[in-house]
Design a protein around this nucleic acid. Structure first.
Lengths: 232, 232
DNA sequence: AAATCATGAGGACATATGTCCTTCCCTATC
DNA sequence: GATAGGGAAGGACATATGTCCTCATGATTT
């Protein structure tokens, strides 16, 4: 982590994400812009939380580790996203670990200033409510899907979501298999089983596997599997 | 549902739960106290949400229904709990259905008054933040546990939680089996499989099954299974 | 009392998923 | 070019879980 001393860039980010009204004048002197390298740990589960971070550039991976050491990836997040919001409101230590999945820039502010200038400042509170309720909806949805549907369906959803995200002119519809372990942890299954499902998808002509990449062949087929009942 | 026209009782509830500062003066004329009978539907998934409810007495069951008609019970809630908070903040229709699991009393207020008198009222916003972040933590925990642990562990946790709740002098440690289907839906498994796990627990001497009730024999054993790795 | 019905428990089998280990291919190093 | 090392893919087997159906039991009706 290093701090980027560039107030203009910081201001640009604030405006780009309509945060100017959320972080009003008293906050400004206490906002910092941080840079994290890919793979760097941004915060660790269980650690005392003291900064609220706003992700403004790059991608982060959010994961939790069970007492036995199993890793469960909860999500990948892109801007605009906030880290440490729940922890701030509840005054608890970090619930999950966050790692930079690419080079990442975040705006950070110490809880002490949030408390001092933000406790009664409605725009900030409203902003937090929006962010947190959104997180809640995503998580709620994720819980229901994981309990109601088999790995097959969950993986179809995963493929659709990452293929849109990774979409760019050079590698249309390609997904690197180097992330398969991540994918498995994300949908709460084992690497082995994920491979089985991939094999099955290949047989059904939904995807193709080629030297380190997955290629989506039948987006509609995946969408159908993802949204409909497993049996039809 | 019927309205209870008793301002004093309403005030009592507000004070009992330290809500007097949350629902300040402009709200008061628009607060109503409602009563729901056991089994009555309080709100239905997908329905347009227009009231915020505060559960002040009784127990409610929160559940979701998948497009295929499968039911997943998300939780049972007791006071103090709020229904329709997320929906209010996001302006969306009800995410889940809520049913009265006992005779229930709730304070209700129409969104229009919340908007009119609450959008900039920090105590209300802070209250919502507290409630919602708490919900988030519970759900987050629940998601992790469901993805990381088998039914065995989840059911042990379920038993411990309901046995504490239902604890009362007459039926110590007894759990009616009439709720087994609910229990199965709650931990995201089938009734059949739950029965298998119950059988296994009986063999291991953790619980006993007798004419319509489950009896907890070895609370420590359950606690151990619930909190430790499945293999030790 | 016989017949019927509702409900809870459990058997049989299929499928989903986890664990461990082997195989294969690529690459770095000598 | 030979060899060792590492990672990815897949085989074999065990376990977890779902679905469908049967059976027993007690309540309700005739």
């Amino acid at each position: 982590m290093k701090e980027i001393e560039n107030r203009e860039l910081l201001q640009d980010y604030l405006h780009a994400h309509q945060l100017a009204s959320v972080f009003h004048e008293p906050f400004l002197p206490h906002l910092s812009l941080f840079q994290f390298d890919q793979g760097e740990l941004i915060c660790a589960q269980g650690e005392t939380a003291c900064h609220l971070y706003v992700l403004v550039k790059g991608k982060v991976k959010i994961f939790t580790t069970s007492p036995e050491g199993k890793t469960l990836i909860l999500s990948f997040k892109k801007p605009l996203e906030v880290i440490g919001d729940i922890e701030y409101v509840r005054g608890i230590s970090y619930l999950n670990s966050v790692e930079a999945a690419s080079s990442v820039q975040m705006i950070g502010i110490h809880y002490r200033w949030l408390k001092k200038y933000g406790t009664d400042y409605a725009p900030l509170l409203q902003f937090l409510l929006q962010i947190i309720t959104h997180k809640f909806c995503v998580k709620s949805n994720s819980l229901s899907i994981n309990l109601l549907y088999p790995v097959e369906v969950r993986f179809a959803r995963y493929l659709l979501s990452v293929s849109v995200e990774e979409w760019n002119p050079s590698n249309k519809e390609q997904i690197s298999t180097s992330n398969l372990l991540d994918a498995a942890n994300m949908i709460g299954t084992s690497y082995r089983h994920l491979n089985r499902v991939i094999q099955q998808f290949c047989k059904e002509g939904l995807i193709e596997r080629a030297n380190g990449f997955l290629l989506i062949k039948d987006r509609e087929g995946l969408a159908k599997m993802a949204s409909e009942t497993p049996n039809e």
